[in-house]
Design a protein around this nucleic acid. Structure first.
Lengths: 233, 233
DNA sequence: CCAATAGTGTCTGTGAGACATTATGTT
DNA sequence: AACATAATGTCTCACAGACACTATTGG
């Protein structure tokens, strides 16, 4: 049977939090098209590879990230004719969350790989700007009703560290006291470890209790973002 | 440049409500593989066609549905090796909502096309059972925070008809009085037309006011499903 | 001592849900 | 007359958000 041949790629929107800012992993392209421009990490899916495996492989290959991301999910697919000047390509985009970790290394096909603040990006190759925007919006929404904020912090974390995740991804300051009470009131969101930090904060304050992620898959009740009138109509 | 060639298809989960039950559009396959089995409508994307256009075209071609669906959005992509015995295929699934309308017609490649209740389905070809399940779950979630329930009803509708959409998709009876007050309290969900139905209900009751969809894109506050303890952990 | 932070207490407004009630229609 | 439905009213509980307050740490 005949069919029109497509190239299938995966592109990954990998997010982390550094210095109180949301960062995305981008690579400097080493090959045409768009050589020298920045882009999301990604590449062709191999003939016998499932899509998720391809996303993990490309993330490792292109950026030298040692451990996999804490969370990886499919975002959406992009297949407009002409989005790649070489050929007809359908790209399956993935969204990854990772705790802050060492700088990535450039790998095959990539001249360089860096974590870059999302609010101060260069122009990205292909339609990667749009893919990133949709990834960030998905991340914002997911923090509301899932415990995925814990994918941005280390295995043990304080409530303040968790609050920083929300504040950074949402771009909104949150009330510390109310956030604290709220997080502890959601069943299965976090569970105490009985331990505390070794010292207080860098500028004072008592030692904080340490928590780890609980067993909830959905937050109920959800942590809703402060209302966004603009987005409603 | 060389790349592994893939076939790219679209498959559509088209939902409507008939006889107080959620129905999905399925076609009897006329060609191999799985000839004679039921499947979601869909087919190959053409070389110069964007993905959404392909979904609309296949929906029309395979089922003879005259007017397009009231809502169409991308659902997810499925590309496991071996999901199609013929070749390596990535399928981009779409989710469509339509008001109840005339029976579909079989088209090219499809021996027959019918609306079938989702809770009483035959085995579907490929991985279409899984795709359908994810489509239904997406529809359920979207009813909570978007006004998409209006995509299942005609242009003018009563609050009771809208309630029936929620009850049918969610599979839960809702309190008529509370639902009524809630819908009218959400800004931009529905707007009154000043008209009423010509007669009361088939078994009595006063004439109902007619509404049309408002201009809200998000419902705030949302209409939350009755709590689902099972899904939380 | 002072500033910053962790954590808790209190109050208020909003909204969801249970339930009741009134009015209006059909059989 | 009996019953179903539309639409509104009332009450209670849960919860989000504003704010106050205490305790504990670092500088």
């Amino acid at each position: 049977m005949e069919f029109p041949p497509f190239a299938v790629t995966v592109d990954i929107v990998a997010l982390t939090i550094r210095d109180r800012r949301l960062h995305v992993l981008i690579v400097e392209r080493g090959v045409e098209p768009y050589a020298g421009l920045w882009a999301l990490p990604g590449g062709f899916v191999k003939p016998d590879e499932d899509l998720t495996s391809a996303a993990v492989r490309e993330l490792v290959e292109e950026t030298g990230i040692a451990t996999g991301p804490a969370h990886l999910e499919q975002l959406a697919s992009y297949g407009d004719p002409g989005r790649d000047p070489r050929m007809r390509v359908v790209s399956v985009a993935y969204l990854a969350f990772a705790p802050d970790m060492a700088d990535p290394l450039a790998g095959t096909d990539a001249a360089e790989a860096v974590w870059h603040p999302v609010d101060d990006l260069p122009t990205l190759a292909f339609d990667h700007g749009r893919i990133l925007a949709e990834g960030v919006e998905r991340a914002r929404a997911k923090l509301e009703y899932t415990p995925l904020a814990t994918a941005f912090v280390r295995e043990r974390f304080t409530i303040s560290e968790l609050r920083l995740v929300y504040e950074t991804v949402w771009g909104t300051p949150l009330h510390a006291g109310n956030f604290h009470r709220k997080v502890l009131s959601v069943p299965g969101f976090v569970e105490g470890t009985g331990e505390t930090t070794q010292t207080g904060g860098p500028r004072g304050g008592p030692k904080a209790k340490l928590y780890r992620a609980g067993d909830a898959r959905l937050l109920h009740p959800a942590l809703l973002r402060p209302s966004r009138e603009e987005e409603i109509r």
